[in-house]
């Protein structure tokens, strides 16, 4: 087929798909809705949640996980567009990182040293490591369906950031169940769980995000 013939066929095709922003927004809505159902059925909000909202540490968990979810999603949109420079969006990831460090320093100052390890180990680290990746499955799947319709030129990196965003969303849900509120616990176990989802996202990206 001559290239001119191909151009004729392309010019005759007027179908334009929706832009990355709409696709990713829809994916997050669907992915979070499915994860929320799973959360309510399998875990549920912890009984003292309303009272805990009055403490500093419980609401802080949502600030940290949501800051990561929002900044990771911004970066994801930059990665979904060919030629877009992702560096500016990537720098915004410093925001949740700085917030975590500030929270860690504040916690170390507020809590006596002999209580640090108990806070870090917490009560249910194993549940956290299973729950966050499990809750992330639906958001990861929905984001990948959306991203396959975009044009990521760095499939592994894009998959990793999709995992990061999905992991942060899953961690936001899980935070409502988790009885451990110390930043020492959150940075360690939430961090490890989200890292697992990020690595899985990178591996999936290499396979699924080529176009």
């Amino acid at each position: 087929m001559r290239t001119d013939d191909l151009i004729s066929a392309l010019a005759a095709d007027h179908a334009v798909e929706p832009g990355p922003r709409g696709l990713v927004a829809a994916a997050i809505a669907v992915g979070v809705a499915v994860a929320a159902v799973l959360f309510v059925v399998a875990l549920g909000v912890r009984p003292d949640a309303v009272a805990a909202l009055g403490t500093p540490r419980f609401p802080l968990k949502f600030v940290l996980t949501l800051a990561l979810a929002v900044t990771a999603t911004r970066l994801l949109l930059a990665l979904a567009r060919p030629g877009a420079d992702p560096r500016r969006a990537a720098r915004w990831l410093a925001l949740p990182t700085i917030l975590v460090f500030v929270a860690l320093v504040a916690e170390l100052l507020a809590v006596p040293a002999d209580a640090w390890s108990a806070r870090l180990v917490g009560r249910n680290a194993a549940v956290c490591l299973v729950a966050i990746p499990s809750l992330a499955i639906a958001p990861v799947a929905a984001l990948f369906v959306a991203l396959r319709r975009t044009a990521p030129t760095a499939p592994a990196r894009t998959g990793a950031v999709a995992g990061l965003a999905a992991g942060a969303l899953a961690a936001t849900l899980y935070a409502a169940h988790c009885p451990d509120d110390s930043p020492l616990f959150v940075a360690t176990w939430y961090g490890l769980s989200v890292a697992l989802v990020t690595v899985a996202g990178a591996a999936l990206g290499v396979r699924l995000l080529r176009w």
């Binding site: 060919p82 877009a84 030129t153």
Partner: peptide, 21 residues
Amino acid sequence: KRHTWRREDAIGPWIEAIARY
């Protein structure tokens, strides 16, 4: 993939990135 280009973006780098990919 033309839905991934926005009119506020320069089109050269967008085409360049697709061609390179």
